[in-house]
Amino acid sequence: MTDSENRPTNNLSSKLNHLFASMTPAGRGSYSVEEVAREITASGVPISGSYIWLLRKGQRDNPTLRHLEGLARFFGVPPTYFFDDEVTQAVNSELALLRALRDTHVQKIALRTVGLSERSLHSIGEVIERVRELEGIDQDPAGPPAPL
């Protein structure tokens, strides 16, 4: 599983880095490894920022189940995110949708569609797909277009 849109491959470091890149606090950049370590430790699972850094760099790749559960809980994903590629793919699709919904331009467009008829929504969906084709964007980042 790879793609050019910053989605992880099958290894732990890529998946963890993807979570750091995707799950950012509102109004600022990514969490630091020290912030994540403090929160996980405060939840009862001792872990250091340097250990998380080693995991992110791929220099450690066999963390304990407790550490993976702590990381998963912090980022709000199921622990199977790190083991099951189907779960990883499903979660990454949800993360892509959340990233898109954070975009104020996307929010404005979505809000402007409230109250439109089913037929109008379908037409807007078709226009968006055509513009994506013209710009060379193959597919909606959240998956194939659903019928509106």
Rank of each mutant, 00 (worst) to 15 (best):
G29F: 03
G29P: 01
G29C: 00
Y31C: 01
S32M: 06
V33F: 15
E34H: 14
A37Y: 10
A42K: 15
G44L: 05
G44P: 03
V45A: 05
P46G: 13
P46M: 12
I47S: 11
I47G: 09
G49D: 03
S50I: 12
I52F: 04
L54E: 09
L55T: 00
R56K: 09
K57I: 08
Q59N: 11
R60L: 14
R60M: 12
N62S: 15
P63T: 04
P63A: 01
P63Q: 02
R66A: 15
G70D: 01
G70W: 02
G70P: 01
G70Q: 01
G76K: 09
G76V: 09
G76E: 12
G76F: 10
V77Y: 11
P78M: 06
P79R: 00
T80H: 13
T80R: 14
Y81G: 11
F82V: 02
F83D: 05
D84C: 11
E86N: 12
V87E: 11
V91F: 00
N92M: 13
N92S: 13
E94P: 01
L97Q: 14
L98N: 04
A100L: 15
L101M: 14
L101F: 05
R102N: 08
D103N: 14
D103Q: 07
Q107C: 12
Q107E: 11
K108V: 13
K108Q: 12
I109H: 10
R112D: 07
G115D: 02
R119V: 07
R119K: 13
S120K: 08
S123H: 06
S123M: 09
I124P: 05
I128S: 03
I128A: 04
V131N: 04
R132S: 00
E133M: 08
E133A: 09
G136H: 04
